[in-house]
Amino acid sequence: MEQTLTHSNLRSPDIHGTVAEFETVADLKAAANAARKNGYVEMDAYSPFPIHGLTEAMGWKNNVVPWIVALSGITGTITGISLEYYTAVIDYPMNVGGKPIFTLPMFFVPMFEFTVLFSAFGAFFGMWALNGLPRYHHPIFSTPHFERATCDRFFLCIEAKDPKYDSDEVAAFLSKLNPLNVSEVEEPEL
């Protein structure tokens, strides 16, 4: 980090990747498929809306969110029932309406709500954490026309960390995939 700071104006900036801009979903999907088949592994696509099958086309798989949610849901259930058990059975047992002290039917609703609340927290915060958001800045934002990635354009970025990455080769490869334009994106200078 320090090195980058001191020598930033001496060395050429790091490359984030090469980005192609597409006009349609079909083009983007075809491009992602082609890139995967061509052996690229480190890539990301940017689109204004979720496209089903795109991550598969990119050859990327991730199913952590459901597990986080399942775990947080179970945590919620256990939290709910143990809170109820400790406070209403152990700490301060009270006879209400002649019902048993440990009254599962009546403990059910709070237990359920705890489960839902914890699962929702798991889904929400887990998803953002895995996505690495909020994030102040990202190099991809310096791509030309990238403001249209939230409107009507589709981008595919083959990232520099890919083992097969070579600027010219990637640019040539992407140009064949019917893009509107191809550009190289740099890491921001710090």
């Binding site: 992602a32 990301d44 696509a45 940017y46 689109s47 204004p48 809306f49 979720p50 496209i51 795109l54 991550t55 990119m58 990327w60 991730n62 199913n63 952590v64 969110v65 459901p66 949610v69 889904a123 929400f124 887990g126 998803m127 953002w128 895995l130 996505n131 958001l133 909020p134 994030r135 102040y136 800045h137 990202h138 991809i140 934002f141 990635a149 939230t150």
Partner: peptide, 16 residues
């Protein structure tokens, strides 16, 4: 939150 429409993000987003 710095949303950039990444396909990986969309994937987790849809799941969540």
């Amino acid at each position: 939150l710095g949303w950039r429409g990444s396909a990986k993000h969309w994937h987790r987003y849809e799941q969540a």
